[in-house]
């Protein structure tokens, strides 16, 4: 009951926001390797016919803020227009040795680590500019990580509407229930951005909140 009341509130809040502003900034936030850029690429391929950024199994592939302007989503006579902002993954530690273990040379790893630290700082700075945020979480990982709690807590403190995406549901260890249990007050959608699973429902939820 309480969950539905909160959900309705979020839906109304999202809706009011989309109606009021023409070019809203829709941010993609989350920890590294949760699939933010994979989701951004899926959205851009579906509606613009081009990808947004490079993806990699090595964490911190996205180290700069990327913005795709004027994405128009149309369905059932309705239309949504937004600027999509893909942000670097937020982390509390960056160890260049992890990149070396992933196959980079020491020089490349140190460069990547330096750029990644700047990316985290920029991602947090950009929080203030967002009108709404999709928090992308890896559904095979522990949802109670402090990074997740800090991101969502900061969005809440700034009164920025949030949609949580539980990504990688195609994997065996995925658990949407765990994420729902960790963040019961938020609207949540389980998808696989890589496989395209549940993307229709993901777009529907964007439309629902934009009513």
């Amino acid at each position: 009951m309480m969950f539905h009341t909160v959900n309705n509130f979020i839906n109304r809040f999202f809706g009011a926001l989309f109606r009021k502003k023409r070019h809203i900034k829709l941010g993609l936030y989350g920890p590294p390797n949760a699939g933010k850029t994979t989701l951004a690429n899926h959205i851009c391929m579906d509606w613009l016919g081009e990808e947004m950024g490079k993806v990699s199994h090595i964490p911190h592939e996205t180290r700069e803020i990327h913005v795709k302007e004027q994405i128009n989503i149309k369905s059932g006579g309705k239309e949504l227009s937004f600027n999509l902002v893909d942000t670097p993954g937020i982390a509390t530690k960056i160890d260049y040795e992890d990149f070396v273990r992933a196959g980079l040379s020491a020089k490349e790893a140190k460069k990547r680590a330096k750029e990644a630290t700047k990316g985290v700082i920029d991602a947090i700075k950009w929080l203030d500019d967002m009108d709404a945020v999709i928090v992308v979480l890896d559904s095979t990982k522990d949802p109670y990580s402090q990074v997740n709690l800090t991101i969502i807590g900061n969005l809440e403190a700034r009164k920025i509407p949030v949609l949580i995406v539980a990504n990688k549901v195609d994997l065996k260890r995925a658990s949407i229930k765990k994420i729902q249990a960790a963040f019961p007050q938020y609207h949540l959608i389980g998808i696989s951005a890589k496989e395209g699973t549940n993307m229709e429902k993901f777009y529907e939820s964007l439309f629902k909140v934009a009513k």
Binding site: T92, K93, I94, K110, I124, T150, G153
Partner: peptide, 18 residues
């Protein structure tokens, strides 16, 4: 506070080195 946590993460990133 949540803002202080975010600030701590930013400051941590500024201090990362070898």
């Amino acid at each position: 506070t949540k803002q202080e946590e975010a600030h701590l993460i930013q400051a941590t990133m500024e201090h990362i080195n070898g």
